[in-house]
Amino acid sequence: MRKRTLKWLTFLVLLVFLTSFVLNYSSTGLHAPWFSKQMVLGFSDNLRKLIKAQPCTCTRCISQGKVSYWFDQRFNKTMQPLLTARNALMDEDTYQWWLRLQRERKPNNLSDTVKELFRVVPGNVDPVLDKRLVGCRRCAVVGNSGNLKDSSYGRDIDSHDFVVRMNRAPTVGFEADVGSRTTHHLVYPESFRELGENVSMVLVPFKTTDLQWVISATTTGTITHTYVPVPPKIKVKQEKILIYHPAFIKYVFDSWLQGHGRYPSTGILSVIFSIHVCDEVDLYGFGADSKGNWHHYWENNPSAGAFRKTGVHDADFEYNVTTTLAAINKIRIFKGR
C-alpha cells in the first residue's frame, strides 16, 4: 500500500513540475510541436524508470543524501548529463548562457541543428546510461596529470565497470600506469583523438558549431576549422556517439563551481558526469605530482603546467571541489607519485 501511494505521489509531483515548466517556458528558437512530443515521451520514460529504480548496493553510494549538507546543496539527481531527442528543450537562460561560452557570431538555429544531429547519432540513449538498472557501478575517472607516471595504477583502473578519459589522453605505451580500457571518452572538436572501436565518444559541446561538427565529421566532412583546424572526418561509429547536455554544463558551473572561471574544464565535467551515472567513483591523474608540478603524464617537461593555466578555468577551485568530495567520502582520489 505504501509503495502504491509513493508511486502516485511521484506521478503527481512530476505532473505538476511538467505543467509548471510548460507554462513558464519562454522560446529559445526551438520549434514547439517537435519538442512537445519529445517532452511527453521523455516524461513517460523518466516516470517508468523512477518507479523501477533499483537501490545502490555498493559499500559507499554517491547519491545517498543527508551525509553532507555541502553535497546535498550541490547534487541534483534529476539533472540528466546526456542530450537526447526527448530532453533537448532548454530554458531561455540556459540557452543564452551556453551561446555566450565561445561567442559565436551567427550561430545556427539550435532546433534545426539538434533535429539533424539525431538523424545521424542516437537520440534515444538513456540519459543516465541505465544507472537505475544497475545495483553497483564502479567508475574510474582518469585525468591527465603527470602524477600518473610510475604509479602502477593500470590494473586497478581497468578493473572498473566504466573507465572515463578525456581529451587527447593516450593509453598506448602507458598501460602500466593509466590502464588500457576506456568505456567513455569526453572530447570537444578541438581536443579530439581517434578512439578504440568499442569506446563511446561523449562530445562536450561549447557552441552550436560543435554539434554541426559531429554531423559533418560522420558524413560529409565539410567542417575543417572552428577557431583552429579540426578533424574533418572521424572513425567513431555513429551509434557510439553521445552528447553532453549543455544544461548539465551550466549545472556544473552554477551548482558545483559557484560561477568560478568562465566555464568548467573537461576534467570537472567528467567528474560530475560520473557521480551522476556511477555509484562509486575513483579519481586518478588529478592535481599536481608529488613535487608540485602540473603537467600531462605524456609530457617530458614536468614544469609545463599547460593545463592549469588555460585562462578560462579556475583549476584551483575545481581541484578543491574534488578534494572536498573525497573528504566527505563521496569519491576516492588516488594521487600517484
Rank of each mutant, 00 (worst) to 15 (best):
R308C: 13
R119P: 14
L6D: 13
Y25G: 09
L148I: 15
D161W: 10
A53R: 14
K233D: 07
E280P: 06
V204G: 11
I215K: 01
E194R: 10
K330S: 04
A32F: 14
V228N: 06
R2W: 06
R103Q: 15
R337V: 09
P232S: 14
P55L: 02
I241W: 03
Y153F: 07
G173T: 06
N108A: 15
Q96I: 15
G179M: 02
F43H: 07
S216N: 03
L110W: 11
G292Q: 03
G123R: 07
L14Q: 09
R100G: 11
V125I: 05
A32W: 15
K235N: 05
T224Y: 10
D45L: 09
T5I: 11
G123E: 08
T94E: 11
L186P: 00
V202N: 10
N198E: 01
P302S: 02
I243K: 11
P246K: 03
L257M: 09
H260S: 01
I272G: 00
I331N: 00
N109V: 08
Y95N: 07
R165G: 01
G292L: 05
G287F: 01
I272S: 04
P232V: 15
C61P: 03
Y297R: 02
L9D: 11
R262V: 07
V164R: 02
V121I: 03
G221N: 03
I243G: 10
K233Q: 11
S290M: 12
P232H: 14
I333M: 02
F162S: 03
T322H: 01
P246H: 06
P246F: 05
A247C: 13
H185N: 04
A53M: 14
G154L: 01
V312P: 06
Y251K: 01
R48F: 10
T220D: 13
T310L: 15
T182D: 08
P231Q: 13
F192A: 14
A176C: 03
A53P: 13
I51L: 04
G261R: 05
D158P: 00
K233M: 13
L15G: 04
F21M: 12
V134L: 02
T94Q: 09
A32S: 12
S152L: 03
A176W: 08
L99D: 07
T322C: 05
E104M: 11
V16T: 08
K37A: 15
E194N: 08
L195I: 02
L30S: 14
D45Q: 13
A327Y: 08
I268T: 08
Y25I: 14
I328H: 01
K77M: 15
C61G: 06
G65I: 09
D161H: 15
M90A: 13
M39T: 14
V142N: 03
R48V: 09
G146D: 02
T183R: 00
N147L: 05
G179L: 09
S290V: 09
F118V: 11
L110N: 08
S200H: 03
A169N: 04
Y284T: 05
P232I: 15
F174P: 01
F162T: 01
